[in-house]
């Protein structure tokens, strides 16, 4: 008879523990943050995004910009936390996907009114990886051809310019005759 009771307790405890956890792990996107900033102002939220550019260290804290599907958001966090991010999004690579928990500011009084999140914790969800940009073979073939064409046209232009004067005179002469008719 004891077992179901324990099970019930466990379920209850689990539900209690997971309630705030569910609320907090559901991350908020930049779209909602920008469109409804006053709803989230001063609240602790979870934000998920790809680290882009570089970490910018300012004393014992650092700025990190996280990009989601819509826009990038500035994250203010302890410098030590930013060291956990290894790959940064650029042309050469996809950056680490990072999940942070922190306080959202519609217009941060500490940072000149920037919209930002002051992170309290950081978690790396996925490591970044190098992006491949293979050379397009068709373009590689067309490249010397286009340069050859340009050179040929350049020579043709120079030759044309030499004989151009004569040609223009002939043309004007013809135009003049047509005009008179």
């Amino acid at each position: 008879m004891k077992r179901p009771w324990i099970a019930l307790l466990l379920i209850l405890a689990g539900a209690l523990a997971s309630l705030p956890a569910i609320a907090e792990t559901a991350s908020v996107g930049t779209k909602d943050l920008i469109e409804k900033p006053r709803d989230f102002d001063g609240k602790t939220i979870v934000f998920l995004g790809e680290a882009i550019g570089d970490a910018m260290r300012r004393g014992d804290h650092a700025w990190v910009n996280l990009l989601d599907a819509n826009a990038a958001m500035g994250i203010w966090l302890p410098a030590a936390d930013s060291d956990a991010i290894k790959d940064w999004g650029s042309y050469q690579a996809k950056g680490d996907v990072v999940r942070i928990r922190g306080v959202f500011h519609r217009a941060c009084p500490e940072h000149g009114g920037d919209m930002d999140i002051h992170a309290e914790s950081l978690e790396i969800i996925a490591r970044g990886k190098a992006s491949a940009h293979p050379v397009n073979q068709v373009r590689l073939v067309l490249m010397p051809l286009s340069l050859a064409l340009a050179s040929a046209l350049f020579l043709a232009w120079k030759r044309r310019e030499k004989s151009g004067k004569a040609a223009t005179e002939a043309w004007n002469h013809w135009e003049g005759r047509r005009e008179r008719r």
Binding site: M143, S146, L147
Partner: peptide
Amino acid sequence: VYFTLSLGLSLSSGFLLSIAGV
């Protein structure tokens, strides 16, 4: 590669315009 290709194509158009405009 694509910048060089663009160079070839745009120079060609520039020279063509110049030829047409002597």
